[in-house]
């Protein structure tokens, strides 16, 4: 009986030593992972801070204003129609209406100076949250700013047009 107890004690001690080895090995793995994580941002730089869409780059040095619209959105239609109703040449830049559906392109059909782009993939890469949104691209295709457009006077203001006297939007 004494022998059994003694051998059990020895085995328990051996087991403890093995467990200590296992724990130290685990700790080393954790430390290696920690160092790898800390070193990672320096090794691989993140994506560009500025969104760039080559499709909206232009050769003539003028910026491009992109109005992003969606079909099931009454205010998108109003904004697009308002944009199409602007006289050509008033705005210093290219005008584009971007959407994923043909129906939206029809809203600006009567205006040849507004280009309608129907491209779901491009829409995904422009990635706006709310519609209608206006995005301004520099001539090299880099995004300058983006704004949600809530009303026609806001659209005028964002495009740099003179405001009509009746508007109370400052």
């Amino acid at each position: 009986m004494q022998n059994v107890v003694n051998s059990l004690a020895v085995f328990a001690f051996l087991g403890m030593v093995i467990a200590l080895f296992a724990i130290s090995a685990l700790l080393r793995i954790v430390r290696e992972l920690q160092q790898a994580v800390l070193a990672a941002p320096a090794a691989a730089p993140g994506p560009d801070a500025v969104r760039r869409v080559t499709r909206f780059a232009s050769a003539d040095g003028l910026p491009t204003f992109v109005l992003v619209v969606s079909e099931q959105c009454p205010s998108c239609r109003d904004r697009a129609v308002h944009l199409a109703g602007m006289p050509p040449g008033r705005i210093d830049g290219h005008l584009v209406v971007l959407s994923a559906s043909r129906a939206c392109a029809a809203w600006v059909e009567p205006a040849p100076h507004v280009e309608a782009v129907v491209d779901a993939d491009l829409l995904g890469s422009v990635a706006v949250g709310a519609t209608p949104s206006l995005v301004k691209y520099a001539p090299d295709g880099a995004e300058e700013w983006r704004r949600v457009v809530g009303s026609d006077p806001d659209l005028d203001r964002l495009l740099g047009m003179d405001l009509p006297e009746s508007s109370n939007v400052r």
């Binding site: 205010s75 998108c76 949250g129 709310a130 209608p132 949600v148 809530g150 109370n168 939007v169």
Partner: peptide, 19 residues
């Protein structure tokens, strides 16, 4: 009111601005 409206995730967002 100056009323503005946009769409966001399938819902309407409206603002009523009171001068």
């Amino acid at each position: 009111f100056t009323v503005r409206e946009v769409s966001w995730n399938g819902a309407r967002l409206v603002s009523h601005e009171d001068p």
